[in-house]
Amino acid sequence: MARPLTRRAGRAGQYLALAAYMVFLAFPLLWLLSTALKTPREMALLDPTWLPRQPTLANFAAAFSEQDLLGGALRSLVVALACAVLTVVLALPAAYAMARYRSVINRIAIGWVLVSQVFPFILIIIPLFMVLRRLDLVNTLVGLILVHVTFVLPFALWMLLGYVRAVPRELEEAAAVDGAGRVRSLVSVVAPLLAPGVVATLLFSFISSWNEFLFALVVLKDPDVATLPLTLAKFTGPEGVVRLGPLAAASLLATIPSMVFFAVIQRRLRSGLMAGAVKG
């Protein structure tokens, strides 16, 4: 008799716990949104309101005029785009080679991918800074692009390796039997199947570079070449309460690229693009 009762109590407990998690996860986000929509007058109130009384978009406009956020965003865009394209151009041939030939290099490369995930950046960033200084690349976007490419490469290679392995070798062999040359089979058979993987890797590299802070902080000392995360971090300083609105607005805008990336990836993961390729 007691069984269903405890069961129902258990369910209620589960919902309670889930609600607690959702509050913890969601409230900082809602607060950011709420702050971004408040007027300066409302921000200055002694007792902060939970929801903006007169929601305004003025903070978004203010964010761009007040500090060099637009410049920061443009520089971030240049760095992230260059980083994404360069990374894929460099990693794709290597991923193809690793997927198609077996060799000791494979193991070393995969070992390096793992090591690079856990190494403290500080140990690399000091000598790297000295190298960049010698090459006169400190305070240049080129220097930052090089650093970002190097640090995104291992994981991008890993991602692409998975996608190349998923393209069956039989397809290339079939193309060869049909008389297609090596290049032709790569271009017209392998490339279309790899396209989704390449897009995902491009996006991943773009986001990693767009969000990156520590290397940018070390490489770009000059505020005139600061990228978006640097400009945002500097935004705070000894701020008055009134400046928090534009800060929240700018933070939200800086998050948009990553959000788009995650939305795209989630759909990609489910669609199973390879499903029909071998059957035909």
Binding site: L25, F27, P28, L29, W31, L32, T35, W210, N211, F213, P229, L232, A233, F235, T236, L244, L247, A248, S251, A254, T255, S258, M259, F261, F262
Partner: peptide, 18 residues
């Protein structure tokens, strides 16, 4: 999953507001 998609700098700023 949302925190995963946010730049660390933005997470830091957001919590400063909290």
């Amino acid at each position: 999953v949302v925190p995963w998609a946010m730049p660390p700098v933005v997470i830091g700023l957001m919590w400063r507001l909290v």
